[in-house]
Amino acid sequence: MAGDQTPRPAGEPDDIPSGAGQGWTALSYLIGGMLVWGFIGWLVDQWLDTGGVATGIGVVLGMAGGIILVVRRLGTPT
């Protein structure tokens, strides 16, 4: 087994994609977007002293970005 150099053909492209992998991808894009832009908003908050408004805007923006990424990456019919 270890010696033979004729591996079986590569996995067929049309087998069903793993649902859990896609689910984690979707969730991590959403949380990632929220964290990244929330952090940027928080920095703006510290800079301009806006009392949480900039962080909120950042979180909403990041969430929008996360949704766009999920739609683009997972939501286009193949």
Binding site: P17, G19, Q22, G23, A26, L27, Y29, L30, I31, M34, V59, V60, M63, G66, I67, V70, V71, L74, G75, T76, P77, T78
Partner: peptide, 18 residues
């Protein structure tokens, strides 16, 4: 139908995360 599942999931889950 799976792509639409992820679109729907993302939009709804966004509310919980917000």
């Amino acid at each position: 139908t799976l792509p639409y599942v992820w679109i729907g999931f993302a939009v709804i889950e966004a509310l919980a995360l917000l």
